Simulated scan of single mutants.
Amino acid sequence: MPNTLSDASAQVARTRDPVSKGDGRRSRLMLPALLLPVFMAVANVFIVNVATPSIQKGLGASFADVQFMLTGYTLTFAVLLIIGARLGDRFGRRRMLFIGVALFTIASLLCGLSAHVTLLIASRVVQGVGAALFMP
């Protein structure tokens, strides 16, 4: 015979736990879905650092252009991170995550298609804005 008191307390615990409201599959996919954009933001710095000599040679960029390309993303990301967190508090973190990932992805496409170093630097700055929106 099942113990109704323990069944009732387990039911109360399940209703209070926000993760157990949905099905198990959704809660298992939530962590990778949240960690993937964070990985994208951090890996972007390392990928561009490794590819810098090829980018410099391919676009004919000067040393100053390369520095702007590298620091444009990092500085924009760092400066706007707190503003991105505040926007997430105000308009919803989920909305800012989607907007930031979309902006970051479009800017990444522009970086890949850029034929001039000025467009690459501008695209890297837009990537920093997108990362600052979805990171918090």
Rank of each mutant, 00 (worst) to 15 (best):
M1Q: 10
M1S: 12
P2M: 10
P2F: 09
P2R: 12
N3S: 14
N3A: 13
N3E: 14
S6Q: 13
D7K: 12
A8T: 06
A8N: 05
S9G: 00
A10S: 15
A10Q: 15
Q11Y: 07
V12K: 11
V12N: 13
V12W: 10
A13W: 14
T15R: 10
R16W: 15
D17S: 15
V19L: 15
K21L: 05
G22A: 14
D23T: 12
D23I: 14
R25M: 10
R26S: 07
R26H: 06
S27I: 01
S27T: 03
L29D: 07
M30V: 13
P32G: 08
P32F: 02
A33W: 14
L34Y: 13
L35T: 13
L35A: 13
L36Q: 10
P37E: 00
P37V: 04
P37N: 02
P37L: 05
V38T: 12
V38M: 14
F39N: 11
F39Q: 12
M40N: 04
M40Q: 09
M40W: 13
M40D: 04
A41T: 11
A43W: 06
N44A: 14
N44D: 15
V45A: 10
V45F: 04
F46K: 09
F46E: 12
F46S: 14
I47D: 02
V48N: 01
N49K: 03
N49Q: 10
V50T: 05
T52G: 01
Q56E: 06
Q56H: 07
Q56R: 08
K57C: 08
G58E: 07
G58I: 04
G58M: 04
G58W: 06
L59S: 06
S62G: 15
F63T: 07
A64W: 09
A64P: 10
V66L: 08
Q67K: 06
L70E: 07
L70F: 02
T71L: 06
G72F: 03
G72E: 01
Y73I: 01
Y73H: 05
Y73C: 01
Y73P: 04
F77Q: 03
V79F: 03
V79E: 07
L81D: 09
I82P: 05
I82F: 11
G84Y: 05
G84P: 02
G84C: 02
A85Y: 06
R86A: 11
R86S: 01
L87V: 14
G88L: 03
G88H: 03
F91Y: 11
G92Y: 13
R93F: 09
R93M: 12
R93N: 10
R94S: 00
R95V: 10
R95W: 15
L97Y: 08
V101P: 07
V101G: 00
V101L: 14
A102P: 00
A102V: 05
L103D: 01
L103R: 03
L103K: 00
F104N: 01
F104E: 01
F104L: 04
T105P: 07
I106R: 05
S108T: 07
L109H: 08
C111F: 06
L113M: 13
A115F: 07
H116N: 12
H116T: 09
V117R: 09
T118M: 04
L119V: 13
L119G: 08
S123L: 01
R124D: 04
R124W: 04
V125M: 11
V126I: 11
Q127W: 05
Q127C: 15
G128P: 08
G128T: 01
V129E: 08
G130S: 04
G130N: 02
A131V: 02
A132K: 02
L133D: 00
M135G: 07
P136W: 05
